[in-house]
């Protein structure tokens, strides 16, 4: 029973972590809190749904295509909104307000196009086999979801730690001005970051849609709150922090449901967030969220 719940917690937490990772990348590198990340999450799920149920693509093609689509939505938001605010050196509040607007627009758009009621993946396409590990049962779908999120996170950590691109991104995170003086094409890498972050956010949407088998235009907002909680728990802008924060949130929720009841799920996880902020305002790995000029 306990082992089973731990597996469920890791599975849910890894998807939260994936969502939070994209969110924190944008904050760390662009210095912007992109509140349309939940909207992108939702559109990613709808994109996959549409590709599978209307275009009858197999899921292993539909998922990558929906990921790229989500990335392009993020790129579009950057080019249309964030870039202009950067050029004007707008204050931190402006991108937040502007991306809330983008999120509302995306939600309305999804409502208009797909209706307000929840939609489902045609899950007959997945065989409902289970993996048996001792007395733990892991549905194959859940195993796949968890594996994909963990692989994507490992890939991102590897890129950031070990590649030239990652070095350049970390340089921009510390100081866009210093990075520009080294010949790093800062503006181009801002676009790339927005693309990657949105692709990760959209993927999280697909995976949550698959694991709860429900997609609705309103699924982005609660996820956004969880994402904010996860990155604050971990320390703003810190990749390890976002991953651990997401996992922690997943664990807290699953155990709240198991040992209390599902009504207490959000109360418990956000209560923990509150306690964390009292104890360590900068989060687990947080330096203070300042950057040099």
């Amino acid at each position: 029973m306990l082992a089973q719940q731990i597996v469920n917690a890791i599975s849910l937490g890894s998807v939260y972590a994936l969502f939070a990772l994209g969110f924190t990348l944008v904050f760390g590198i662009l210095g912007v809190i992109n509140l349309s990340h939940g909207g992108i999450f939702m559109l990613g799920a709808y994109a996959a749904l549409l590709l599978i149920s209307k275009f009858f693509l197999p899921f292993w093609i539909a998922i990558p295509v929906a990921m790229i689509f989500s990335g392009l939505v993020g790129l579009l938001i950057d080019v249309l909104i964030l870039r202009r605010l950067r050029q004007r050196q707008a204050s931190h509040l402006m991108p937040m307000i502007a991306t809330i607007g983008a999120a509302i627009l995306m939600t309305s758009l999804a409502q208009g196009l797909f209706g307000s009621e929840a939609r489902r993946f045609p899950l007959e396409m997945f065989n409902d086999e289970n993996l048996k590990l001792g007395n733990i049962t892991i549905p194959l779908l859940q195993a796949g979801i968890t594996t994909l999120s963990i692989l994507l996170m490992l890939l991102m950590v590897w890129v950031l730690k070990r590649t030239r691109l990652g070095q350049a991104l970390r340089a921009i995170a510390e100081s866009p001005r210093a990075a520009a003086l080294l010949g790093i094409p800062v503006e181009r890498l801002f676009y790339l970051t927005s693309f990657i972050a949105a692709a990760l956010g959209g993927t999280a949407g697909i995976l949550i849609g698959l694991s709860f088998n429900a997609i609705s235009p309103f699924m982005g907002q609660p996820m956004l709150h969880k994402g904010i909680a996860a990155i604050i728990l971990g320390g703003l802008g810190d990749v390890r922090g976002a991953v651990l924060g997401g996992l922690f949130l997943g664990v807290a929720e699953v155990f709240a449901i198991t040992f209390l009841s599902s009504e207490y799920r959000d109360a418990l996880s956000f209560g923990l967030l509150f306690l964390m902020l009292l104890w360590r305002p900068q989060g687990l790995f947080g330096a203070s969220a300042t950057r040099s000029a």
Partner: peptide, 26 residues
């Protein structure tokens, strides 16, 4: 056309080696 900026613009959260490697970014 390369500049050593005022205040040196060292990337403090990166290692010395990483700073040098980024110098050759172009």
């Amino acid at each position: 056309l390369v500049q050593v900026a005022e205040g040196r613009a060292i990337l403090k959260t990166l290692t010395v080696l990483e700073n040098l490697e980024l110098g050759a970014y172009t």
